Amino acid sequence: MGVDPTGESKRVMNARILIPSADGSINVRLVTSSGEEIKAAWPGWDHAMFVNTRRHGKDCVSLHDQKVLRNRAAARIASSQEYRVEILTQNRVDFCNILQISKDDHIVIDASVCQVHKLPMKRQMEEIYSAEDYPESFFPRQKREFPNDGNFYSACSSRSDPTWMCPGCRHGYDRWAKRHDLKQ
């Protein structure tokens, strides 16, 4: 088996999941059976493509949308119960990403399945593109039709982070880019 290009490793634990209710945070706390506390990013966080340019001026996945997704999933989690939690950890950040939550062999949340195409996704390092190269109309469409295309649309950052890539989303992006004669 080769080296994982994302630098992530998987960890499985039994834990209670504590979800902040009022502050709108996308982070949760995992408390293991032994009392260890782990800060984790709620599934969907790395699908948020924030575009902070003068031209676009707003984020593509609004904080409201993030709260709706979090609250919908949180309705399936009882903080008093323990769940089997798989997390992805990285050496360079102080929190992890939740991969899957299950209870009694029933999957409650699976971040590795695309919510648009219902296909399994793979982890990869983001491909970074300049947000300035895209029309404003692209971003709402990208959010609806191919949110897990494996790209990051940045105003200035050149740092690539691990992200999910769905083959259906990637195909949708490639089709869109070809129709709009976007050279990538």
Rank of each mutant, 00 (worst) to 15 (best):
G2V: 01
V3R: 02
E8Y: 10
R11Y: 06
V12T: 12
V12R: 09
L18W: 07
A22W: 07
V28D: 11
V28M: 04
L30V: 04
E36P: 05
E36S: 09
A41V: 01
A41Q: 04
W45Q: 14
A48I: 13
N52C: 08
N52P: 03
Q66S: 12
L69E: 15
A74G: 05
R76E: 06
S80L: 08
Q81D: 07
Q81A: 11
R84F: 01
E86V: 13
I87A: 06
L88Y: 08
T89Y: 10
Q90F: 06
F95C: 10
I101S: 06
D104Q: 03
S112I: 01
C114F: 04
Q115N: 12
L119F: 03
M121Q: 08
K122R: 10
R123W: 11
Y129R: 15
S130T: 08
S130P: 04
S130Y: 05
D133M: 13
D133Q: 14
Y134R: 07
P135C: 10
F138I: 00
F139D: 01
Q142P: 04
Q142G: 06
R144D: 12
N148W: 14
N148E: 13
Y153I: 00
S154P: 07
S154V: 08
C156P: 10
D161I: 11
P162R: 04
T163N: 09
M165I: 13
P167Y: 12
Y173E: 13
R175I: 10
R175N: 05
K178E: 14
R179G: 13
K183R: 13
